[in-house]
Every structure is written in C-alpha cells, then in structure tokens.
Design a protein around this nucleic acid. Structure first.
Lengths: 145, 145
DNA sequence: TCATAATTATTTGTATACAATTAATGATAT
DNA sequence: ATATCATTAATTGTATACAAATAATTATGA
C-alpha cells in the first residue's frame, strides 16, 4: 500500500520540468562552491561580464546576460552593498549608468573564475566529447528562437 | 566605439549559466501557454503529479517532484486559493496531510495536459531523434548524483 | 520651440527556490 | 511512563525572475 510511482510521475515527461530540475541541481552545485566567496552564481555571472567589459552600460550588461532589467537592478544592489561593484553616471546620457568592478572584486575575480572553470570541467568530464557537444548544441538551439 | 562583445561575454561559457538561460526561455514558452488556464508551469507539475496519485501525502509529493517542502507549501497555498486542490488531514498521522484535486481541477486537467504534451512535442520536433535522445540522456545523468 | 514619443533604470507585486527555524506530533529507549 | 529524539509541514528570510507601472531624461516631429 501507499506505493509511490516515482518514475511514472507525469511531470518528469516534460522538457520544461527536466530542465528546471537539472538547472536547480547544477545551480546548487555551483552555489555551494561559490558560497566561500559570499556570492551566488547569478552574482558571479554579473561580475564576470563586468570584468570582461569594465564600465559597461547597465542596458548592455542586461542585454549581454539576457537578464531582465529589474532582476539586474536587484543583483547590482547586492553586489554594491558587498562593495564588489560600483554604479557611476554615464557622462553621455543622464538616464544611463555605467558599471565598474571595485578594487575588492578585482582582487578575487581571477580566483573565482578558476573555480568556475574547474566546476565546469568536472561536469564536462562526466560525458564523452561527442555527447557533450550534442548537449550543448541542443541547448544553444533552444536558447535561440 | 562602445562595442558590445556579446559572444565573448564570459558567463556564456558555463553550463550553469547556459542551463539557466535555456530553462528560463522554455519556462516562458510554457508559461505563456498555461496562462490561459491561470496557472504557472510549476503549478501544472503539482497538479499533474496529484492527478497521477490523488490523495498523495505532502511529503511524497514533494519527494516525487524533487521540490523543497517550503516551495511546495507556497504552491499548494496558491492552488488551494484557486480552488484547484485541497489539503486534507491524514487519518493515519496527524503531522501529515493528503493532497487532492478538486472537481474544478479535474475538469480542466486533461485539456491542460494535452497542451503540455503539444508544447513538448513542438520542442522535440526541432531535433533529430538521436540528438534529442542524447540531450535527454545528459540531462538525466546530470539530475542524478 | 514645444508637445509627444521613446528610452533608461527603478520600483512594486507576484511566483518560484531553498536554508534555517518552529510547532505539532510520533517513535524510541530506558 | 516519560524524557529524548525524529519527522512533518509551515513560517521566515533571502535571492532570483519577470511583468507592469513609474520617474527622469532624451529624441522627434510639427
């Protein structure tokens, strides 16, 4: 009695469900490693993108991360509170603002990036090159329209 | 000037970022279709799992959906408010509770499920069988430990 | 020029997600 | 029998995510 039909549970049939389950799993994996630096995966993506293009416009940052502006505003708030980045006025457009890494962020970003690459490598290594390439190709196609 | 290095933006190198981007995209796709029924994808997963096992225990439901208990509590609150499901006391254990679909939910769940399968099929059709099978295999492996 | 439209970032409200804590209840060991 | 431990669901607090509304600024057209 009280049998639990774990495997036939319907939601697991849908890509959307599968993706969200896997995403959360991988997210937690990254999260637990990043926590030693006091940041979350999403915060790392932002730091990483700003590092690549210091002084980037808010708007371009949101676009490059494919992130909603209001989400980015929240993340910038937290990173600014941690003294990891800084908003400055855009001298060319008073509506716009520019985002810079702080000295503190520049001191740890290389190390954090190494960690991120290590985590990534660990995941990659669990699959054959061909398998993983196909996986990434499907993801890429799904992220387009 | 002000070139935007969209493609070299670092975060896009990481599986975690890619997964979250694709997940959000697919999620929005499901979401826009489900909205006609006034439910979200996550709410659909719950309804779907309860439909498969009406009267399931809260604990087993959370486990089968691999969902944190506190997240499930919130979703049940909203579904109950919409009169789509019902919590009842478990006669065998006063700590536990059982979850049931309402008449209202039973009237629309088949139709919503058809929609979900259609959306799923549309995504599947964009790839070759072999490609998609590999994709699902990688997802499956990633969702395990 | 000046009213209107468009753009930019923020704010607000809702919905997951999850860790940590709590309250109620059940199980166990002595 | 009872003190202790374990389990269950809810609550609280934080962090994405995103739509809709807002305020400030810039662009446009008559």
């Amino acid at each position: 009695m009280n049998e639990i039909k774990t495997n036939s549970s319907r939601p697991s049939k849908y890509v959307c469900y599968k993706l969200s389950r896997v995403m959360r799993k991988v997210h937690r994996y990254y999260e637990s490693s990043f926590s030693q630096y006091g940041i979350t995966p999403a915060q790392f993506y932002v730091l990483s993108a700003v590092w690549e293009n210091d002084g980037v416009k808010f708007k371009d940052l949101a676009k490059s991360l494919e992130m909603d502006g209001s989400t980015l505003t929240s993340i910038l708030d937290r990173l600014e509170r941690q003294d990891l980045l800084e908003r400055r006025d855009d001298p060319e457009d008073r509506r716009s603002l520019l985002v810079f890494l702080t000295k503190k962020a520049k001191q740890s970003i290389v190390e954090i990036t190494c960690l991120a690459e290590k985590l990534n490598q660990e995941i990659k290594e669990r699959f054959s090159e061909e398998e993983y390439a196909t996986f990434e190709r499907v993801l890429e196609k799904l992220s387009q329209e």
